[in-house]
Design a protein around this nucleic acid. Sequence first.
DNA 1: TGTACATCAGTGAACGCGCGTTCACTGATGTAC
DNA 2: TGTACATCAGTGAACGCGCGTTCACTGATGTAC
Lengths: 196, 196
Amino acid sequence: MSSKKPHHHGNLRAALIDAGVALIAEGGPEALSIRGVAARAGVSHAAPAHHFPSLAHLRGAIVAEGFRRFTQAMEEEIAAGSDAPRDRVVGAGRGYQRFARENPGLFHLMWGGNKCADDPEIDAELREAAGASFEVLRQVCAPITPGGAGAEGNELFVWALAHGLASLTLAGFGQELVPGSAEDRFEAVLPPLKFG
Amino acid sequence: MSSKKPHHHGNLRAALIDAGVALIAEGGPEALSIRGVAARAGVSHAAPAHHFPSLAHLRGAIVAEGFRRFTQAMEEEIAAGSDAPRDRVVGAGRGYQRFARENPGLFHLMWGGNKCADDPEIDAELREAAGASFEVLRQVCAPITPGGAGAEGNELFVWALAHGLASLTLAGFGQELVPGSAEDRFEAVLPPLKFG
DNA sequence: TGTACATCAGTGAACGCGCGTTCACTGATGTAC
DNA sequence: TGTACATCAGTGAACGCGCGTTCACTGATGTAC
């Protein structure tokens, strides 16, 4: 093993994103800064400029990474349950709750409206990552019998219920009404659904 | 009318809170600062210290004011509808959506987990204001027939659905699934409820 | 109705801090020949 | 395989900015007598 500290980092871009995720996990979205991620990644505070033109670009890349992990959390919980249509909806909802609980700062950043870069490359990455998350929701909701607002109404209903429950839980509300983990609370409040 | 600028403001505390609400409306929760509210209220940046010991105290007072306006929005929408149990639930949900749409920055600040003061006085004010909001929800949900998760389950269900829909709408999602205003979307996705 | 005086609510200067960004630079990498 | 050289990815100093907070101060208010 070489004891010389290499001048080139190797994959600083990914390391900066990981450092940003860690900073946000510890201090919330406000804790994200160029200088902070640089220090955490062990480089000078000017180094990130070679990978992200601005803080907004870094934020966009981190949000995209958040959506990828969010998709993964939902897919894992869906896979952990049965293939029954309702269990797949419950799985997505459980993944939603788990991701929010495990990544509260990231969750807020993803949905909180903080400014991200307008850069076309970052924007495309973000759009693709978020689109994959929405696609998971769409697929588990597709088998639900369309109601008054159509199949899209079902998707928005499940999405809003899962999102609202996660947000309220992060804000500290809900436990006093329905005890248990956030994941279990989603199952508890999900009303009967018709399929087919 | 006196043309002399009075040394004493009269009710600077209230003016600072209003200025803070305006700043947040224009630039989001991040835009709130001691110096900003002072400038907007037309006083020196040191003046707020006589009314709020720290930024966290000012933030707490503003969040409390937000909850008072939130309660008012729900009560107005409930009063605008019929006394039928379902219409009262719909009214609360419509008020939820309207408040979020009209006060997006305040909405994020209220639920976003930004640090507020631990000061007992501010804390009591905040607790009372938020408690009044929750009480409105509790009362409109009380007539719903208790399901598996009890009456509290119904309340959490309606609360999460309304909150999630408002959050998604502010983040720019939902319109493509169910067209119309956020208020109308709440009615559209609210499933049948049993009362009595 | 006066007057002395304590208290209150402002001002303006100053502090140190962390921030994003820029700049000239330097060492490492990788490629053309 | 060697060498010249363009390019890349870092460094460290410096910039200006807005921030929260503190401080000595001053003018206005209101109260005791």
